[in-house]
């Protein structure tokens, strides 16, 4: 995202999304295009979906990006890919923490406690653990090349085992999130969206906005890390 217009466009886009997500009124029988329907039991708390879900989504995007750059590093042995892999993992950790905190706060007010070990809470916790382990591993290896190789291998192994949760979780526990076992709208990893069309629009706009924001932040992070690396090397 090099050009200024794209950046300004994204800022406007996200401003509109935030504006719509927070300010659009919730009424029992929506008539105008900007009115959201009230969902019984959720009321105003339903607005979390516009922020919390895109954060969790971005965490997964960052995780996949980090793994892909890890694979490319192993194929090319080009340390620049490792730098991108770490940058993606760093941003992923940040979004992961944000998603955990927002979800946890919301759970306190809607489900009654900060943490319930619901399947999706468990999987975000595991993702946090993987990020933690990834950085712990990196700090334990001194040689640059070796550090890059080992962390790339670790992120690939983590990447192939994480999908097992999709199969394991529904067998073990009932969940509180939509789409879990016990949810009348259908158990399974794929949630069937039953949102009002205008909410769905804002939701997907937010999803796209957050993803683009991630790529923008990623670009800045990679460039600043490159500069940092460059300034550390002895000048000739």
């Amino acid at each position: 995202m090099k050009s200024t217009t794209a950046k300004i466009g994204l800022v406007i886009w996200l401003t509109l999304v935030i504006f719509a997500a927070i300010l659009f009124p919730m009424v029992p029988a929506p008539e105008k295009w900007y009115e959201f329907p009230i969902i019984p039991g959720l009321e105003e708390k339903a607005r979390i979906i516009f922020f919390h879900v895109p954060m969790a989504w971005t965490t997964v995007v960052a995780f996949i990006a980090s793994t892909i750059y890890g694979i490319r590093f192993l194929m090319t042995k080009n340390l620049d890919y490792d730098l991108r892999s770490v940058s993606a993992a760093g941003l992923g950790t940040m979004f992961c923490i944000l998603a955990t905190i927002t979800g946890s706060l919301w759970a306190k007010f809607n489900w009654g406690s900060f943490w319930n070990w619901d399947p999706r809470e468990t999987s975000i916790f595991v993702l946090l653990l993987i990020y933690g382990a990834y950085f712990a591993l990196r700090s334990a290896v001194d040689v640059e090349e070796k550090r890059a190789t080992l962390s790339a291998v670790y992120s690939i192994i983590a990447g192939v085992t994480v999908p097992f949760f999709i199969f394991v979780m529904p067998r073990i526990m009932t969940g509180l999130h939509p789409g879990s076992k016990g949810d009348p709208q259908g158990a399974g990893p794929v949630v069937q969206f039953k949102m009002a069309p205008n909410m769905l629009l804002v939701f997907f706009a937010s999803l796209i906005g957050f993803t683009l924001l991630y790529f923008w932040m990623f670009d800045i992070k990679v460039r600043s890390s490159r500069l940092e690396l460059h300034s550390q090397q002895p000048q000739e």
Partner: peptide, 26 residues
């Protein structure tokens, strides 16, 4: 992996747990 790292003892459970969790739950 950890054989090539510096702090082996503590790192092993840290790296293993997230990988093994689906299997342990099963």
């Amino acid at each position: 992996i950890i054989a090539k790292a510096n702090t082996r003892g503590t790192l092993y459970p840290v790296l293993s747990f997230p990988i093994m969790l689906p299997l342990l739950l099963t």
